[in-house]
Amino acid sequence: MAPIIQVFGFSVQAGPLATLVGFVAGLWLSSRLAALRHLDGGVINDAGFYGALAGLIAARAGYVVVYWPAYATEPLSALMPSLTALLPWTGWPAGLAVAGWIVWRKGLLRAGLFDVLAPGVALLAMGLAGAALLNGESPGQPTTLPWAVTIWGESRHPVPVYELAALAVIAPGCARLLRRDLPPGALALAALAAYAFARVVIDGFRADVPLLAGMRVTQLAGVVVCATALLMIERLTIDD
């Protein structure tokens, strides 16, 4: 666990750095693979970049609006480069809306786009899992297994490592399947089903998930998402 790492003598927050690496790598991979679906990789790059920028701006603006009484007397502090003053509920929708608008304007908003994005999103998810590992988040149940990691003073299942391992299978699997002639959207749904099922298995080892009727909410949601995605593949294929 290392929430802060030293890079060339500078203290850097490891979690955001891992997320950034995952995002850049994912965007690069998806834009490179776009040609396999006859899509313009440059548009995907633009959508990713401007979407992220818009998301960050909207997240900061949302934070400042919500906490305006605090910022009213010193509005310039809204420009401080801090990753903690962000509101996800305004950032994510704005980022997705801008990215969606760019791909829609270029005529790329179709099912095949999601197939191309699947391996890239898997890399982004690897970055997020890496961030969780470095920040000591998602603690697992206590265990004496030899690969246990010490989190918060106790040997525990390395849940983010399990997630990284699952994604390390899903990401290249998606990239390979892109070369096959599948109905548009089928690959993205298969990737979603695989990830959801992986979470069902992995979250069985987690120690910090809210419960519903004595069971972990994320596992229950994973079963529903996995089954739904698989049934949607069937519909896609029949419709095709």
């Binding site: 934070y63 919500v66 906490y67 009484p69 605090a70 910022y71 007397t73 010193e74 502090s77 809204a78 401080m80 801090s82 903690t84 003053a85």
Partner: peptide, 10 residues
């Protein structure tokens, strides 16, 4: 900043 502290404390 004072604003950030106040927003977190709220």
């Amino acid at each position: 900043t004072r604003a950030l502290i106040e927003s977190k404390v709220s």
